[in-house]
């Protein structure tokens, strides 16, 4: 195992975060704060409790997920897209590194970054809402699994994209709508049929539900199902990446 290589890539990617601190950390925190002010405090004060949880507290796990998903994807996709775009990827390809080490470096950094961000948002939320975390270990577990899974997904997008537009289209056109419709701001039990059943095809429902369970012990779907689905997405992304490196898809001619 070429640990120096993993570390080199990881450090390189993290250095990019600190260089672009405003963009990578400050702006997601700011936009989440705005959600809290609008939905949590202003509108939330006029809303009743959902599943015994105040509305302001109820939306916290969903908001964290929203940032976690989009940041994981955009960090990881940009991290691998840019060397491809600028040509510096030649060095990684010519180095004695295995696909696993490349992915560990890039995805590890992207996931660390978005987890850090998720925790930062939680800390920010504390200023506005008093919330408790019933199952802290599970909370961290879901946070980490989701960050890794969607960083892997972002890595795949970064490999697939051959221009900047494609890089942004999936997070913007797919992930954001799925998150909004995935129960970030409401419990899916509040939806009438058939929407309630249709919603179950939205993968983000399971992530948010599981994450919210870790906070308040209440969930839209059973925690075991949420956990199983998260692992399933992880496996799906790992398979995609395995295929990319086996075929050299869009990285080697």
């Amino acid at each position: 195992m070429n640990l120096y290589a993993i570390l080199a890539i990881y450090k390189f990617e993290m250095a990019r975060t600190w260089r672009t601190l405003m963009q990578s950390i400050a702006s997601p925190v700011l936009s989440t704060t705005l959600y809290f002010v609008v939905f949590g405090t202003a509108i939330g004060s006029r809303m009743g409790e959902i599943d015994g949880v105040s509305y302001g507290a109820f939306i916290i796990p969903g908001l964290v997920m929203l940032s976690l998903l989009s940041e994981s994807i955009s960090n990881a996709s940009f991290g691998i897209f840019f060397p491809k775009f600028s040509g510096t990827i030649y060095e990684v390809l010519s180095a004695p590194v295995s696909p696993f080490e490349i992915v560990a470096g890039y995805v590890g950094a992207a996931a660390s970054k978005s987890m850090l961000l998720g925790l930062l948002i939680l800390a920010t939320a504390r200023i506005f809402v008093d919330y408790q975390i019933e199952h802290p270990v599970w909370m961290i577990c879901f946070l980490a699994l989701t960050a890794v899974t969607f960083s892997l997904f972002g890595f795949i997008i970064g490999i697939w994209a051959d221009d900047f537009q494609k890089l942004q289209v999936i997070p913007l056109m797919v992930i954001t709508p799925l998150t909004f419709l995935g129960g970030a701001f409401y419990s899916i039990n509040m939806l009438p049929e058939p929407w309630q059943s249709i919603t179950l095809f939205n993968p983000v429902v399971y992530l948010i539900s599981g994450f919210r369970w870790a906070f308040y012990g209440v969930a839209d779907v059973h925690i075991a199902v949420s956990f199983g689905m998260t692992l399933f997405f992880l496996t799906l992304c790992l398979t995609g990446i395995w295929w990319i490196f086996r075929t050299g898809y869009r990285i080697k001619s």
Partner: peptide, 24 residues
């Protein structure tokens, strides 16, 4: 390589250290 491709925002020292690490 033939083409000049470098990480524009890195320092010389950082990029050279990166290369060494990458090669284990």
């Amino acid at each position: 390589p033939q083409e000049l491709c470098t990480d524009a925002f890195e320092s010389v020292w950082a990029t050279v250290s990166f290369s060494r690490g990458l090669f284990g």
